[in-house]
Nucleic acid binder design. Structure first.
Length: 274
DNA sequence: AAGCCAACCTGGACGC
DNA sequence: TGCGTCCAGGTTGGCT
């Protein structure tokens, strides 16, 4: 579900509410997400700890508690939400962190593809999933990283955009939309695309992510994404091709096509995207 | 050795 | 109503 704009939207909604507050209760379920949650470790590490800051790397959210850092990834169905401690938790609530001003942060993740780990600050730098990430899609050198990787790769350009070790933060929606705006066929081998067009694609990535951020992310019809305050994102109405199989391309009115690529849907206009 | 793909899960939408 | 099938915003490890 959440790609860079959604994770950043969540980060921004949590930051003013939680930073500088201490945790006074931890309720963790020993559930298996991508890695197992260890309740005792969460309690031991976080009880009494003050949240110093919230940062984001790609789709990962990092909560800095000084000694320790909590690392979150929301997978496909994860939500971080704020609620009053007394309210009944939603099904699939795996983690509840109550802060000293009576606000509770809850991690809900039905499909359990997410990540919630507590790391010693010293071990943060050697945490594999973060080590693997390429530059953040919003970082200045993301463009250079994309140009460089595209020059070496025979993979379809859509797959390259999804590869977090090339550029971190893009998922299927924004990769698909960036390709539409750049007028590039998602199935084309990265290496076969001119440098000039890859540069244009890098620009489209930046524009799409920027617009999605301004809209507070993408909430599809199923209502999957909401920020920590329960608000929708409004970028769905601006999607040009994603989820629009059979609809008219906004530029040329040709029917938008859906294909499976690496087991995932990709949408494009066969006329505008070459 | 890069790149495909099944697997990890649940839930919702759809067809019969 | 119910049951089966397909699909979903992500990542990884194993295979070719």
């Amino acid at each position: 579900m959440p790609e860079l704009p959604e994770v950043e939207t969540i980060r921004r909604s949590l930051e003013p509410v939680l930073v500088a507050h201490r945790i006074d209760r931890v309720i963790a379920s020993p559930v298996r997400l991508r890695e197992a949650i260890e309740p005792a470790r969460w309690t031991r590490s976080l009880l009494g700890a003050r949240l110093l800051g919230l940062t984001r790397r790609g789709k990962y959210l990092l909560a800095d508690f000084g000694q320790t850092v909590a690392v979150f990834h929301l997978g496909m169905s994860g939500r971080l939400m704020l609620s009053a401690p007394g309210r009944n938790p939603l099904p699939h609530t795996h983690l509840r962190l109550r802060f000293d001003h009576g606000v509770e942060l809850r991690l809900v993740d039905p499909r359990r593809f997410g990540v919630a780990v507590i790391l010693d600050r010293r071990r943060l730098a050697s945490y594999e999933p973060l080590l693997r990430l390429g530059p953040d899609a919003l970082a200045a050198h993301a463009t250079a990283a994309l140009v460089e990787a595209a020059g070496r790769s025979r993979a379809p350009i859509r797959n390259l955009l999804l590869d977090q070790s090339v550029v971190a933060g893009l998922g299927n929606i924004y990769a698909t939309e960036a390709l539409a705006r750049a007028g590039i066929d998602p199935l084309r081998a990265a290496r076969g695309i001119s440098r000039r067009r890859i540069l244009r694609l890098a620009g489209s990535v930046r524009v799409v992510i920027g617009e999605a951020l301004a809209a507070g992310g993408t909430t599809l019809a199923d209502g999957g994404f909401i920020d920590a305050m329960g608000r929708n994102g409004y970028f769905a109405v601006r999607l040009q091709v994603y989820g629009r199989e059979g609809e008219a391309c906004p530029r040329c009115s040709s029917a938008i096509v859906r294909r499976a690529l690496a087991g995932r849907s990709v949408f494009f206009c066969p006329r505008c995207q070459r």
